Amino acid sequence: MHGYGGNTYGLSEPRTLRERAREYALLPLRVFLGVTFIYAGLDKLTDSAFMSASGAGSIGETMNAVRDSAAVPGLVDLALKSPEGFGYAIAIGELAVGLGTLVGLWARLAALGGALISLSLWLTVSWQTTPYYYGNDLVYLMAWLPLVLAGAAVFSADSFRASLRRRNL
């Protein structure tokens, strides 16, 4: 029972401030990424100009503009087969990743989804950004990695489910 932070009577042992802080260390990152990806998904879904194959501010125009400078032009070519479909896939993916991250439901899987979205955008849309640290997609990719590794330890559906499983043991 000590492995779960309690003693044989189910009472928690006192922990130091440093131990408690470590438990909450990724919470600000999780909230930021969750809210940001929810906002990004909703912003795309409600922007009729973005969800078009052509025209100012459209996903199609963006993909055509970055096609020759992308690290992986094949990804852009794939998106250009159906720009609207790609736009909806990115927007719905961002929304699902953001909600999963914020609520902490399948947090590692949600973080992996966020990392993959960020990676794909870095390799296509923001690849040509010079110097590289001006591009935000690489930073988002790196921000997702601690959540892929650690998940959502506190204030999450995952931790609630884990505590229910421990109680039932």
Score class of each variant (00 low, 15 high):
72 V>R: 00
151 G>D: 09
39 Y>E: 14
9 Y>V: 13
76 V>W: 04
83 P>K: 10
47 D>M: 04
28 P>V: 03
154 V>M: 10
11 L>G: 13
104 G>M: 05
12 S>L: 11
93 G>P: 05
34 G>D: 00
148 V>A: 14
73 P>I: 11
117 I>W: 01
29 L>C: 01
102 L>H: 01
33 L>A: 02
112 L>M: 03
72 V>W: 04
137 D>S: 13
23 E>R: 09
48 S>G: 04
168 N>S: 08
152 A>Y: 00
155 F>K: 04
75 L>K: 11
29 L>K: 01
104 G>D: 05
131 P>S: 12
163 S>Q: 15
62 T>L: 14
109 L>R: 06
161 R>S: 08
16 T>V: 01
79 A>T: 11
60 G>Y: 07
87 G>Q: 02
69 S>N: 10
94 E>S: 13
106 W>E: 03
138 L>G: 10
52 S>M: 14
89 A>Y: 05
74 G>C: 08
136 N>Y: 13
17 L>K: 15
129 T>C: 06
152 A>D: 06
161 R>M: 06
155 F>V: 13
86 F>S: 01
109 L>G: 12
167 R>A: 09
40 A>K: 08
22 R>G: 08
101 T>E: 06
1 M>F: 05
131 P>W: 06
113 G>T: 09
89 A>W: 04
138 L>S: 07
14 P>H: 03
70 A>L: 10
114 G>Y: 01
159 S>T: 09
66 V>Q: 06
15 R>W: 04
6 G>A: 12
108 R>T: 07
157 A>I: 08
17 L>N: 14
27 L>R: 08
49 A>V: 08
132 Y>G: 00
147 L>V: 04
15 R>Y: 03
160 F>M: 14
56 A>W: 06
53 A>Y: 07
75 L>G: 09
162 A>R: 09
109 L>F: 12
56 A>Y: 10
151 G>P: 08
26 L>M: 11
62 T>G: 04
137 D>V: 00
144 W>M: 11
101 T>V: 13
53 A>V: 09
66 V>F: 10
21 A>K: 08
108 R>N: 07
84 E>F: 00
154 V>I: 09
78 L>K: 01
118 S>Y: 01
88 Y>Q: 05
46 T>Q: 02
99 L>H: 08
136 N>V: 10
64 N>F: 02
79 A>Y: 10
66 V>E: 06
45 L>I: 15
20 R>T: 14
60 G>N: 12
136 N>P: 12
112 L>V: 03
79 A>W: 11
46 T>M: 05
153 A>H: 09
107 A>P: 00
99 L>D: 06
128 Q>N: 15
136 N>W: 09
82 S>T: 05
